[in-house]
Design a protein around this nucleic acid. Structure first.
Lengths: 151, 151
DNA sequence: CTGTATGCAAATCCTTTGCATGCCT
DNA sequence: AGGCATGCAAAGGATTTGCATACAG
């Protein structure tokens, strides 16, 4: 189901920063590592709630810690709620967001391209932490409705 | 203070879509056109409130209409609130967001670069509406704190 | 033991909405 | 006149927080 190595890796990260490895955190972590797509905090909470007794607050708090540790990445595609995805063992990528159906696809940039983006930041004396590149538009299935349906 | 031509342009756009050109909308519009940097809905509301009697609801409603008309662009850099900027007469650009002080700088991509991004979307049968490219990191002044201060 | 972590509910922040009234066209 | 726009306050949705209790190290 999940990669034990990844779990150990995160466990080490947690302890390294002085966080305790509690049973609630383990349950949350395992669930996150088992997901390979984007999810919201609420979705995660409800998935866990089915089987375990974990509180919403702990889910939110843990997500924030994991983002801080760099285990999870957080996105805001403007829907009023954050989307998360774990990045352990996931190649770096960007997103195409369909304004019609909300579907999110991923794509990669070739190294050359990426180097250039970093070069731009460097020229501006900026230390890059992360690059978020999101293309909004309409997917194949939603092209018809393209004319930006008046909200 | 502001470019009358731009105001007329928006006025036309509003009427073209069946919206009325009211005095509240004119005040909001003039203020927005006078700003040349990002602002939140609340900031805009308080700027207007100093001199006029405009309600928060109208400010929010008007912003949404303007986004819809393509007069204003909306960003979500993950601070829990939306940032707006008017794009009439503003060349297309992207952002560098400092995780230290929150400062936002702008940068442009050369055409070649931009063409390639669109090509990627096209290959995935995606109709591009807009491209958001944001580089998060630490600006010159905040480089010291770079190690991502534990929130 | 000692200090975090957890759960719960209440609080917060931003944004949207319902409804009665006001104002463009 | 007729309908969209406005104001107000209340509602809504996502996330955070205070506090008493439970648990990892």
């Amino acid at each position: 189901m999940i990669d034990k190595k990844e779990l150990e890796e995160v466990k080490k990260l947690l302890k390294g920063k002085g966080y305790k490895y509690t049973s609630a955190r383990e349950k949350i972590l395992k669930k996150i590592l088992s997901l390979h797509s984007h999810f919201t905090a609420e979705e995660l909470f409800y998935m866990l709630k089915k089987r375990y007794k974990v509180s919403r607050a702990t889910v939110y708090r843990t997500l924030n810690i994991l983002v801080d540790l760099g285990v999870v990445r957080e996105y805001d595609f403007g829907k009023g709620k954050k989307l998360f995805e774990h990045i352990i063992g996931h190649k770096h990528h960007y997103h195409l967001i369909c304004l019609g159906c909300g579907k999110i696809e991923e794509f990669k940039l070739d190294d050359e391209h990426e180097r250039r983006l970093r070069a731009i930041a460097n020229k501006l004396e900026f230390n890059v932490d992360s690059i978020v590149l999101s293309i909004y538009g309409f997917c194949k299935d939603c092209r018809g409705k393209s004319s930006k349906a008046k909200s």
